[in-house]
Amino acid sequence: MSAKYSLRIAHLYGDLMNTYGDLGNVLVLKYYGKQMGVDVSSNVVSLDNDFKASDYDMAVFGGGQDFEQTIVSKDIQTKKEEINKFIHEGKPMVAICGGYQLIGKYYIGAKGEKIQGTGALDHYTGQQENHRFIGNIEIKNSENGEVYHGFENHQGITFLSKNEKPLGEVIKGHGNNGEDGTEGAIYKNTYCTYFHGPILARNGQIAKHMLISALKQKYPGQDFSQQASLKIPATF
């Protein structure tokens, strides 16, 4: 029996930005989607492909190694408008580590060079000198009260602009920059984070938010209360 609903994931630069098991986020969206009776498919959008916001309902943008990220930072300029459109239309995206940095204003590369992002969001990212934030991290989102668990491993330090909200406040760990107690960013349905783990595996609630939101946008006016009642068990 084919599912009544279907959703398409753009796995942005999935062949280059894929460190630390970030692929797991795609697998988890498919897993919970299946439990909701939704057929979730994914497609890698990379150097040789065009990207059109209207072709996809959700996006996963993972982290990468410095070299790969530099290459992506050049190519992403050709896809900038459509990626920003996707984000501003409120389509669900999870952007992790390098992906998070690349949809901001700019980041400072490994050699100190300033590399442009897509500018969808206003945060910027600098570099710590010879130091990384590594370890388990726990944060709390003050608006919905949810607590999220992850593993952070980043040299970049990100600073949010005044008009960006963090994904949560740090309970344990370092977060965006180790200074202001924030971790990640949330804008419409875009979830930015330094969390690996992967984030959606450890925090199924976020996967659920993304799926429900994507369904509502793709199938307006339909009742998704049954899907929204899906229980997400603790996985960490």
Partner: peptide, 18 residues
Amino acid sequence: MKAKPNTDGVICPNCHNI
């Protein structure tokens, strides 16, 4: 063919294509 999406080290060292 190409490697699976989550394979690392698949960039050409000369021209930076896949």
